[in-house]
Design a protein around this nucleic acid. Structure first.
Length: 272
DNA sequence: AGACGTACCTGACCGC
DNA sequence: TGCGGTCAGGTACGTC
């Protein structure tokens, strides 16, 4: 899944293709996502025009001209692609949205994604949005803010970075990559990270995410950007999925460990 | 309250 | 070739 850079890439892609278009038909082939697609989704989408497309955390928000917001989360394996004409149906294509000039396809192998529609006025009451943490690319995300949020936490810093109630958008890949960039061990207790280190970490998170966005989002097995082009940031991972490979800084082998059931990659030498 | 494990689902890959 | 085990980008919920 897409983490923040991939979702941001999709949002930018959609802004270049479907802005202002009118939704003509919606076919829900498989409503059973992590949260079931509501029965009235098609009814509320059809006839509406796409006013703007934004991102909050890893959620795609498609703002319509009928006072509703169409909310999409890609889960682990979700893709949202756009096509000039109706493409042949593929396995795990769950929703087909026909617009005036474009067809949008939501495909999700593992069905951990989400697609719902919410009244604009209720957006802030939606439970999944209520406790979301700071947006990492905003100016207001600073070392001081991060320090204040984590300096009493007993968890490992890597788990804390993935906690969406603290900072949003950082997932399993970019948590490892950001910690490598900041020379901080993923095993350190969050409470032991100094204010100065929080500053370094915040800068690392911002630059790692911005680099990934610049590269069009990363690709592992399942992710394709909204136009269907593959991203290529995967070539730039320094530690993620690099177990045994030489550290790009010191050449010692990258370690893989498990934290809260998720893989972490790091350099024991550079991130002591 | 905070922190952790587990469930949700399909598919790829590895060793036997 | 097949079979079982493990792993994969996320989030929500139950339990201590």
């Amino acid at each position: 899944m897409p983490e923040l850079p991939e979702v941001e890439t999709v949002v930018r892609g959609l802004n270049n293709t479907v802005l202002g278009e009118k939704i003509e038909s919606v076919k829900v082939l498989q409503p059973k996502l992590r949260i079931p697609i509501p029965d009235n989704l098609a009814k509320l989408l059809v006839g509406a025009k796409i006013k703007s497309i934004t991102r909050r955390a890893k959620y795609i928000l498609i703002h319509l001209n009928n006072n509703y917001t169409w909310v999409i989360h890609l889960g682990m394996s979700g893709r949202l692609t756009t096509h000039n004409k109706m493409p042949p149906l593929k396995k795990h294509d769950h929703v087909i949205i026909s617009l005036k000039r474009t067809t949008m396809v939501y495909n999700d192998t593992r069905r951990f994604g989400l697609m719902i529609i919410i009244k604009d006025q209720s957006i802030n009451d939606y439970s999944s949005f209520k406790n979301l943490g700071l947006e990492p690319l905003e100016k207001s995300f600073t070392g001081r803010k991060l320090y204040d949020l984590i300096h009493k936490s007993n968890s490992d810093i890597k788990s804390v970075l993935m906690n969406q109630n603290i900072v949003v958008g950082v997932g399993n890949i970019y948590a490892s990559e950001s910690l490598f960039s900041a020379h901080i061990s993923p095993l350190r207790k969050a409470s032991k990270i100094s204010l100065k280190e929080c500053g370094l970490l915040v800068n690392s998170i911002k630059s790692v995410l911005n680099e990934a966005i610049k590269s069009g989002g990363s690709t592992l097995r399942d992710y394709v950007s909204s136009s269907g082009d593959k991203g290529y940031f995967q070539h730039k991972f320094k530690v993620y999925d690099k177990k045994g490979k030489p550290c790009p800084k010191c050449k010692s082998p990258i370690k893989r460990i498990t934290q809260k059931g998720r893989s972490t990659y790091y350099c024991q030498n550079c991130q002591g």
